[in-house]
């Protein structure tokens, strides 16, 4: 599955953008339903202090949809592999600061477990290692049935898309991906890839991966968040040894967009701390 791709192929595949700057590398990973544009209220603050890397997962934003592989991306490890591919393509060996939103927090965690030496710090905005409830000990926030409703809603909203009603399911295609002329709505997410991403996001359970992380983590928890309640943030904090939990006075799930200054302040404070390995 892991084809050896040249760097330029990776750059095209994941629509990699590098904001040049002096300092450590900050790699931003967007969440489900979004693309790299969601970071544009955060990146200006680090323009001079860091080299910043932005990208879209395959199937999101302006990535190369032809590289979408429904088997690979049925697991968060597939997305983590994208992150590692990008680091390799940029010849990044260590010191990377990973900033992930929502499901990308789990992606960053998996990438750091796979390559502990690559990452210096993880910033986790609204992490939820397991969205589905596992009563009684764990409340992720959702039941499995809610996902079916979400997929139906996604279908209903994609109806306005060009070609979405022309069911062009490629018969021979390995991926079976729907080739659709993408509009800019919903961050240019491909409908087929989005549904795969939705299932992967909401059915992944990475709770057991948390203790394996050896990199210092900053958890940015929204005060009121439907997708990642405070209790989940506390669970993550409890299982990530040496992590820092900071609750932002934000309602919603996208503090980096709704209240970017809070996120920037917290990041700057965390990034100026000396690098130390978690115990």
């Amino acid at each position: 599955m892991n084809k050896i791709s040249s760097s330029s192929n990776i750059f095209v595949r994941n629509n990699v953008k590098v904001l040049e700057g002096d300092g450590d590398v900050v790699l931003y990973a967007h969440g489900f339903g979004c693309n790299q544009d969601m970071w544009d209220r955060v990146t200006p603050a680090f323009k001079s202090s860091h080299k910043q890397v932005l990208f879209d997962y395959v199937g999101s934003g302006r990535s190369d949809i032809s590289a979408f592989d429904s088997d690979k991306y049925a697991s968060l490890k597939g997305y983590a592999q994208d992150v590692l591919d990008i680091c390799d393509a940029l010849d990044l060996r260590s010191g990377v600061i990973f900033v992930g939103h929502s499901v990308s927090c789990s992606v960053g965690i998996l990438a750091s477990i796979a390559r502990p030496g690559l990452f210096a710090k993880l910033v986790l905005i609204g992490p939820n290692p397991c969205f589905v409830n596992h009563a009684p000990e764990y409340v992720g926030g959702f039941e499995k049935e809610d996902l079916e409703g979400l997929l139906a809603l996604m279908d209903q909203n994609y109806i306005g898309w060009a070609n979405y009603l022309a069911p062009v399911v490629s018969a021979q295609g390995e991926t079976g991906a729907v080739t659709t002329e993408l509009s800019d709505s919903f961050c240019s997410t491909d409908p087929f890839a989005a549904k795969v991403f939705a299932r992967t996001t909401f059915f992944s359970d990475n709770r057991n991966d948390l203790p394996k992380v050896t990199v210092p983590c900053l958890i940015l928890q929204h005060r009121t968040d439907t997708l990642a309640p405070v209790s989940v943030g506390e669970f993550v904090h409890a299982h990530l040894s040496g992590s820092t939990l900071k609750v932002l006075e934000v309602i919603g799930h996208c503090a980096h967009m709704s209240d970017p200054e809070l996120v920037v302040d917290a990041m700057q404070e965390f990034l100026t701390l000396p690098n130390q390995t978690a115990k």
Binding site: G33, G149, M154, N157, F186, L227, G252
Partner: peptide, 18 residues
């Protein structure tokens, strides 16, 4: 209902905020 809340948070708010 829950599904619409997820859709709001993952699709609508990011677009609205931007």
């Amino acid at each position: 209902p829950m599904a619409s809340r997820i859709f709001l948070q993952t699709h609508v708010w990011p677009m609205l905020l931007r």
